[in-house]
Design a protein around this nucleic acid. Structure first.
Lengths: 240, 240
DNA sequence: GTCTATAACTGGATAGAC
DNA sequence: GTCTATCCAGTTATAGAC
């Protein structure tokens, strides 16, 4: 609580600032605290004061760094989105490169999903908060659709591309519907709400992401194939 | 805005109050307004004052009827949950009765999902708001899991029962995982966030629930079967 | 950069008149 | 039942000292 006003600039003066122990680096500390709180209670359920208390600093500093509360929220959302997008694009690229000619829906979905599961499993608690936040945004009617679009569309279009190579008979709109179902299932799983623990009376656990990893992939891949098989003649390739 | 203080008690004095035009029935009016606002902005994003304005009455009346803001929220959530649960239990019962011996995953899922889609399509705008609300609660880490459990567990267990008849080889935990994926996809679809419209550049529409009806059912049924086929030997029936 | 202090306002909730 | 009036804790945000 009681912070000592340490004016020590930095001790290790080699390379880029290591910022481990010596220097506060409040910007990151604020983001970490805000991330956890927003994930738990949503944008409106958290005050900038709570964020300040969580970070062990004063409210004014929050505004100094991020301007407005919305600015803080966007910064929280953007920070890990950039990391995720890079990891997922690389994963999809690698999958397509290493399996050219033998692409499957399973493989494409796995390349899309596994980076998230890996981050949640090994990236530390901040990632768990982040995924809980994404799940909420994904299900927010007022501005959720637009926000998800703004931050995640490129990587989703990349997934759709790979999927259309794996399922060459698929109509485009079927792939979008399949993705809609996938993202609903995926974001709910990653947010670890504890719902399935209660429902299953302990047989399944929200935080058992290893149990989810292959099940979700196989489930959705089978779903995509079912969509293709019973494809409606909607707006098929109009013959010329 | 300017409400006339009509002290007319009721005109048609036959049977149960008809409450169409003559009598206000503020309790329902408040619930309707609150439902729409909560659906759009979440619990913390709405003030009781906004609810009062929306309903065309004073704040004090909100507290008179519902005590606290949380009490109002719970009342909103409960009102349609009861209707839905009754409809879905009847739907599952009818399906099991009329198809004994030929139960399928498709059929069970359809019986579980169609009442919701029907309500959204033909029940009026209040239902659309309600489903948006459910999607948010389903993805709320702090108290979402517990709330969903409290209101919807019985009907979900009924679905699991019918599914285990349709998929007799399925282990129980696989059915719970399959349901987790199903509910994530379903609640996101029903909340109509507009995300897929933007993503698909107009090829698909969030509000096209008829497009979703059979696709979601087939997708998830195929997913359930995939789970059963690649079943892990976890805690299989221990032989005695 | 970081804090103190405060402006300007909104929040949930209630007491009491009618 | 319904409204007016009000309490006061808590909100975002900023000005200005250090």
């Amino acid at each position: 609580m009681v912070r000592k006003t340490l004016s020590v600039k930095k001790t290790a003066g080699r390379g880029r600032p290591s910022r481990s122990e010596d220097q506060p680096n409040y910007k990151e500390v604020i983001l970490d605290g805000a991330e956890g709180l927003f994930a738990q209670h949503g944008f409106y359920g958290v005050s900038t004061r709570q964020v300040a208390v969580e970070a062990g600093i004063d409210v004014a500093l929050v505004h100094y760094y991020f301007g407005t509360k919305r600015g803080l929220f966007d910064a929280v959302f953007l920070r890990r989105a950039e990391i995720l997008n890079a990891a997922r694009l690389a994963s999809l690229d690698a999958y397509e490169r290493d399996n050219a000619g033998a692409l499957t829906a399973e493989g494409a979905i796995a390349a899309f999903v596994h980076p998230l599961i890996d981050a949640s499993l090994t990236g530390g608690p901040g990632w768990k908060s982040y995924f809980a936040l994404v799940a909420q945004v994904n299900n927010t009617p007022a501005w959720g659709g637009a926000t998800m679009t703004r931050f995640f569309d490129p990587v989703v279009h990349r997934l759709i591309d790979v999927l259309s190579l794996a399922l060459p008979d698929a109509q485009e709109n079927e792939l979008y519907w399949g993705y809609q179902f996938l993202t609903g299932a995926m974001t709910l799983c990653l947010s670890e709400t504890g719902r399935i623990d209660l429902l299953s009376n302990g047989a399944c656990h929200s935080n058992d992401l290893e149990a989810i990893r292959n099940r979700l992939t196989g489930y959705c891949a089978a779903g995509f194939r079912a969509l293709v098989e019973s494809q409606r003649p909607t707006a098929a390739v109009s013959p010329t």
